[in-house]
Computed example of a mutant assay.
Amino acid sequence: MGIIRVNNIVIYTNHGCLEEEAKIGSEYRVDLEIKADLNKSAVTDELKDTVDYVHLNKIAKEEMNVRSKLLEQVAKRIIDRIFSEIEMVEEAEVSISKINPPIGGNVGEVTIVLQETRKS
């Protein structure tokens, strides 16, 4: 089993429960970690035998651009697409951070993390 991480995907979009968040938007950071068998690609040196991190980045960006009130829903959509589109992924973890959230104080970020294992 191996791990691929795609970290610090920065996206400006408009998630949140407040009306102002929908209009103004905020900066978000997405971090992905997937687990898959990377032994074959370590030998073959072929992209077709591994998880393409370009594909992971594309999924994260596309789902982040679909408005939701809660980041949990966005993370779940990202995980569902990873499992649907990339068969060799066994586990996926998605962290989404809202940078400078509007919560009435000096808070650098708020982060949610969802992790799932592929169901047989």
Rank of each mutant, 00 (worst) to 15 (best):
M88K: 14
E21I: 01
K48Y: 04
Q73M: 04
N100Y: 15
L32T: 03
E63G: 06
Q115R: 02
R77E: 04
D31P: 03
E91G: 11
F83K: 05
L71R: 01
V89T: 07
E93C: 06
I82L: 14
N65R: 05
R77A: 06
A22I: 01
E87I: 07
E19D: 09
E116V: 04
S97G: 12
I9T: 12
G108N: 13
T111P: 01
E91M: 12
I59G: 08
E63D: 10
G105C: 11
L56A: 06
D80A: 15
E20C: 03
S26K: 12
I11N: 02
V6M: 04
S120I: 00
P101A: 09
V107S: 10
T117E: 02
E33P: 00
G16I: 00
S95P: 00
E21M: 08
M1P: 08
K58G: 05
V43K: 12
Y53W: 08
E21R: 06
P101I: 03
L56H: 07
D52C: 14
M1I: 05
V94G: 15
E90S: 14
A42P: 05
L47H: 11
I24T: 11
E87H: 09
I3E: 15
V43T: 07
G25W: 00
L18K: 15
K40H: 08
Y12E: 08
L38P: 00
V54E: 10
K23F: 06
D52Y: 01
N14L: 10
R81W: 00
D45W: 00
D52A: 09
N39W: 00
F83V: 06
L18D: 13
F83R: 06
L47K: 07
V43E: 09
K61W: 00
A60K: 03
E21N: 05
R5Q: 15
D37F: 02
I103P: 04
S95R: 06
M64N: 13
E46T: 01
V30K: 08
L70I: 10
T117P: 01
K23E: 14
P102T: 11
A92P: 03
L47A: 11
L70Y: 13
D80H: 06
K35N: 07
D80W: 02
K35W: 01
S84R: 08
K48Q: 11
R77D: 05
E91N: 12
I24M: 07
Y28H: 05
R77L: 02
V110S: 14
V66Y: 01
I3Q: 15
N106F: 08
I96C: 15
V110M: 15
L71P: 08
Y53E: 05
I34W: 04
